[in-house]
Structure formats: C-alpha cells, structure tokens
C-alpha cells in the first residue's frame, strides 16, 4: 500500500521534472514564431520573420565561426591528449594512476570564472596576447577533463589482448590502434567528443575574460544581444541552436544509445 504511494509519488516527480526541464525549451521555440516583437505565443498567426533577421545581428557570423572553430579544434586536441593519457592509465601499471586520473579530471570542478581570470592574469604576465590562441588554450583546459573522464572509463573496459593479437598478426602499434582500438572504442570517442564540443561551444565564464573587441564567441555575443535588445530574433537563434543540439543528440543516440551516455554522464 505505502509502496504503491511511494511509486506513484516517484512517477509524479519524474513527470514534473520532465515538464519543468522541457518548459524553457518549448517556450523559446514558441516565442521564436511570435507575430509581434514582445514574445507573444504564436496564437492566430506564426511568423518566420525573426529567423530572417538572425544573419543581420551585428557580428553574428564572425562569432558563430569563432565558436565553431574553437569547439572543433579544442575537441580534436582534447581527444588526442585525453586518449593517450587514458591508454597510459589503463595499461601503464603506474604508481598513483588513480591520483593522476583525478588530476586530469580536476579542472571540471574548477569554477569557470576562476579559470578565466587565472588564465587572463597568466597570459598577461607572460606577454601572450594572441586572442585566438589564448581562447584555444583555455578551451582545451575546459574540454580535456570531459574527454579524459569518458576515455579513462572506456579504456578500462577495453580488452587490450585484442591489441596484442593484432600485433602478433603483423600490425604495427600505430596500425593496431587505428584498426582495433579506435573502432572498438568508437562509442567512447563519440560521447567524449559530444560532451567536449558542447562544453566549448556553450562556454561563457572562461571566454569572457579572454576576448577582445573584435574576437567574441557566440555565447558572449548572445548575452550582449539579450542585454541590448531582447527581441524574438534571439529566440529564433536559440531555437536554431536547440535544433542543432537535438540533431547531434539523435545522431549520437543512433550510434551509441542514450543509455550508455547516462552511464558515462557521470
């Protein structure tokens, strides 16, 4: 009897949580079709004119391009660094492997703003004032822990005797990695890459301290637009970002399954 009440309560919480979590996403999508400039729901007449205005937002294209470059490059660099480190930790029988793994993941626990100001001070002190490169370095610090965490978890499950078998059959070490390890670990790479890309693309607190007047990432531009003139153009832009995220998630789900992502999501 009371068990049934508990289960009903659990389901109510789950459904409530889902509605609560989805409501901002639904609202932003609805507002993007607003017929008036005041975030009306599109009752009576939907309008696509806000979508047409996104490209005309001041500085939109350079910001999008910068954010995509940073997300793709920092993810690629983190995948290389994180995978090498994960192989070493899974295979090396190193003393203190656990401590090293914790150290690799530790920037994840770091408040973003603190990392941002620390890097700002540091780059100033060593006279490093190339904005683009500074942002890339910062984004690798942000994304590496996501990749390291997922790759270490994946590598622990990987059967390394497969690598030895491949080498006995005449593969070089590099070939064995390319032909055996990478296909077997594809789900881990995909999840690591997805988390890393999203973490970089959405980063605000670290980037804000490292940008200059001409070099601004998309999140920084968006917050600036919201501050200056919040009209449904921003809802339209947000909806497009959401749709892109959904496509990425659906593709990942096709390839590896959401359930595995939940397992490694922490």
């Amino acid at each position: 009897m009371s068990a049934r009440i508990a289960i009903t309560l659990a389901w109510l919480c789950a459904i409530g949580a889902v509605v609560f979590l989805l409501s901002p996403l639904l609202v932003i999508a609805a507002a993007s079709f607003s017929p008036t400039p005041v975030f009306d729901l599109p009752v009576g007449g939907a309008s696509l004119r806000w979508y047409a205005r996104i490209g005309a937002l001041d500085g939109f294209w350079p910001a999008l391009s910068l954010s995509l470059q940073l997300a793709l490059l920092s993810t690629a660099l983190s995948l290389v660094l994180g995978t090498l480190a994960a192989i070493a930790l899974a295979r090396g029988k190193l003393p203190g492997a656990q401590a090293i793994a914790t150290a690799l993941v530790s920037p994840l626990m770091m408040p973003g703003l603190v990392l941002g100001i620390a890097l700002l001070q540091y780059f100033r002190a060593i006279g490093f004032n190339a904005t683009w490169s500074a942002l890339l370095v910062a984004h690798v610090v942000v994304t590496l822990p996501y990749v390291a965490r997922t790759m270490i978890a994946g590598m622990v499950r990987f059967d390394f005797t497969l690598m030895e078998a491949a080498r006995t059959l005449g593969c070089t070490y590099a070939q064995a990695i390319r032909r055996v390890m990478i296909p077997a670990l594809a789900p881990s790479f995909l999840i690591a890459g997805l988390f890393s890309f999203l973490a970089s693309f959405d980063n605000y607190p670290v980037s804000i301290f490292l940008t200059d007047v001409r070099t601004k990432t998309l999140p920084i531009k968006m917050l600036q637009y919201i501050d200056e003139a919040p009209d449904p153009t921003l809802a339209a832009l947000s909806t497009l970002i959401l749709i892109a995220t959904i496509v990425l998630l659906l593709a990942s789900d096709r390839l590896v399954g959401l359930h595995r992502m939940a397992g490694t999501g922490d």
């Binding site: 996403l25 959405d202 919201i226 970002i241 959401l242 990425l248 992502m261």
Partner: peptide, 10 residues
C-alpha cells in the same frame, strides 16, 4: 539529455 545539452544562455 536535451536540456542538459542545451545552452545555459538559451
């Protein structure tokens, strides 16, 4: 997952 992946600013 969708809200988790969605941008914080959005």
């Amino acid at each position: 997952f969708l809200p988790l992946a969605a941008s914080v600013i959005v």
